[in-house]
Design a protein around this nucleic acid. Structure first.
Lengths: 209, 209
DNA sequence: GATTGTTTAAAACGACCGTTTAAAACGAGA
DNA sequence: TCTCGTTTTAAACGGTCGTTTTAAACAATC
């Protein structure tokens, strides 16, 4: 087994388990067992559990953000005055293509769940790491949102977009629970795609009102 | 120190710490140290950590749900055909009065954060506990929502209301982080009330579209 | 094929976890 | 005041955690 294999297998297992259980509830022993590597491999290749957490985020956020950056540039070049739909379309398309990442397909729910963890379970080290590495792209995205709605104050833009993020992240974070509840309530199963198809108009209505 | 004191102090500390850090990241030693009681007191009075978690939820959900039940009855008696605003008003008012609970004032953000944990960190035992004890009130609330919008399918109602819950829970759960980010982005501080004042029209627009 | 640097392996470390035990302290009723 | 059930205390238990250590296995260079 090559080094790349070991590192990748650890990242894969860690990503799955973090998304499923959170950081504290996932032990290095679970990760290394699932990855079929030795326990010490995590500390050897990554240094510590904290560094592993950061590496998991880096692996999907770095390609995602550079893709988003490129797409924003394309958008800005094509259209002198991008409206809200344009900006959100760029985000949505980048997310969907970013999900089908370099190595196979990453589930959208895993992506969302990790994003949710970043907000709700981020200890100091992760928050600092994310800000340091991805704040630039984030600011740029927000800037285009502002440009699309110059009549709204920056504060209004900020909060509306974070309400929307909340609806997405919460929904996708607890998608299994919610699907169970929906099943119990309505008697019908809701596929993840059904949910997305309802979520998008919901968000559009809330953002554009 | 009386028994009631000990039990209450444990619940207070546990509630704060759970809301701040989550379940796994909060140890019984942290709780008992903050509560200034002996470590064994938790197992003596509650049985186990799981039982303590359930007790924390029971303490704020039980009064909340019985209040909500009463208010729903009042609403149903006063108005033969309650519309969406009526139903949501009942919920909002119950939440705000429920927050100022029997013992002092509980922060709204703590209430929301616990609600968020129930969705995103609930292990089997907590999920079962919540369903067993509070599912009845929940169903009744959903029923009124359906009656208010009979043209929408139960599935649509279910998902819209949970998207809305997501926006609330996420926002209030990470309110500190978000206020920091907003400050860094816009240069202006957003008070919690400002945020609420923007959240409500956002949700109304999304639900009623 | 010996040597060197890299990666894997097994075992152990100290720390902290939730829980249990057994004795001490307490408080109300006889 | 003595008693007896309740509550608090201090100490210990077994177990799991993240991390470290030491040696073995491996791969590339000469």
């Amino acid at each position: 087994m090559s080094q790349a294999d070991t590192v990748t297998r650890i990242l894969d297992s860690a990503e799955e388990l973090f998304a499923e259980k959170g950081f504290a509830e996932t032990s290095l022993r679970m990760i290394t067992t699932r990855a079929k590597v030795n326990l010490a491999a995590v500390n050897y290749h990554f240094g510590s559990k904290k560094d592993l957490i950061q590496a998991v985020f880096a692996r999907f956020l770095s390609p995602f953000c550079s893709k988003l950056d490129k797409e924003l540039t394309v958008m800005a070049a094509a259209n002198t005055e991008p409206d809200l739909r344009d900006v959100l379309d760029v985000l949505a398309r980048t997310m969907l293509t970013g999900v089908h990442s370099t190595v196979g397909t990453r589930k959208l729910s895993v992506f969302m769940r990790l994003l949710g963890l970043a907000y709700t379970q981020a200890q100091g080290h992760l928050r600092r790491f994310l800000k340091e590495n991805y704040h630039e792209t984030y600011s740029r995205f927000i800037l285009y949102l502002r440009a699309a709605h110059p009549e709204l104050s920056p504060r209004e833009i900020f909060w509306r977009i974070h309400f929307a993020i909340g609806a997405c992240v919460f929904t996708m974070s607890s998608i299994e629970v919610l699907r169970d509840m929906s099943m119990a309530d309505t008697g019908e199963d809701s596929g993840v795609e059904d949910v997305m198809n309802q979520l998008i108009p919901f968000l559009a209505a809330a953002l554009e009102r």
